[in-house]
Design a binder for these strands. Structure first.
Lengths: 126, 126
DNA sequence: CCGGTAGTTTACGTTAACGTAAACGTAGGC
DNA sequence: GCCTACGTTTACGTTAACGTAAACTACCGG
């Protein structure tokens, strides 16, 4: 189904990043595209990984952190001994995210105030 | 009222950062503590600025971005000609924040799934 | 007087996340 | 056959946000 493949520049332009960035992610072991000759060929899975990495970046995560989160989905960690520590990791991530969410909501509330002051300022200046 | 003052190490330990970091913020023009002799003395206002800078950092803003947001509250920008562009800036920040919020909520939903899988995995392993 | 604690300045070092340039291969179009 | 577009590797450069070390000042208790 989702067995489409992409070139490096397709993905770059889709996500608004450079090819250098994509190669850099590979260099750091974040993605592993296959090759046709010497050219990189990206799968739908590769594409999603990049998308998730960029989502992580938007909320201030480092590349490593993003990958850490992405790899939580990876069923490789599903050996019994690690399940508890995985749950702990998830809980930790969740708490950080919840604080971030509060921080954002606080900041949004602040912006509301600023905007109200602005509009008020524009009004009594007729 | 809130005319308390703080030493650099007080603030550092309160916020869990180093004195170097606080001096660095000053070096970058983010805060302007007054001096008693050669020692820095921080006001309640200085303290709040640092707090807000750190909030910005938590949600992935650069120091400059944080200060930009903080300075929106500064009534210095309240000259008529700038009010419209200020509203535009606020709107832009708001949109970014809302997307970040969605990103976070998506990621939280992902964590929920992972956790469910974990607990399920622990169950049928009795 | 001496040691310890907190503060200061100056300056070089470090890490992450790419940017940028050089130098080259390859396939398609005219 | 040559240009152009797209791809490749290698390597040095850059910016942000501090860390770290050196070398110094000021005060306080014993």
């Amino acid at each position: 189904m989702t067995d489409r493949s992409y070139s490096i520049s397709q993905l770059a332009s889709e996500f608004g990043i450079t090819t250098r960035t994509i190669r850099f992610y590979e260099e750091k072991g974040l993605i592993h595209p296959r090759r046709q000759g010497q050219q990189r060929v990206y799968s739908a899975g590769d594409r999603v990984r990049i998308k998730l990495i960029l989502r992580g970046k938007r909320i201030g995560m480092s590349l490593q952190e993003s990958v850490e989160v992405i790899d939580l989905y990876d069923p490789a960690h599903n050996n019994r001994s690690q399940l508890h520590s995985l749950i702990h990791t998830v809980q930790d991530k969740r708490e950080r995210l919840l604080r971030q969410k509060r921080d954002i909501e606080d900041m949004l509330a602040g912006l509301d105030e600023v905007q109200a002051l602005c509009e008020q300022g524009l009004e009594n200046a007729d």
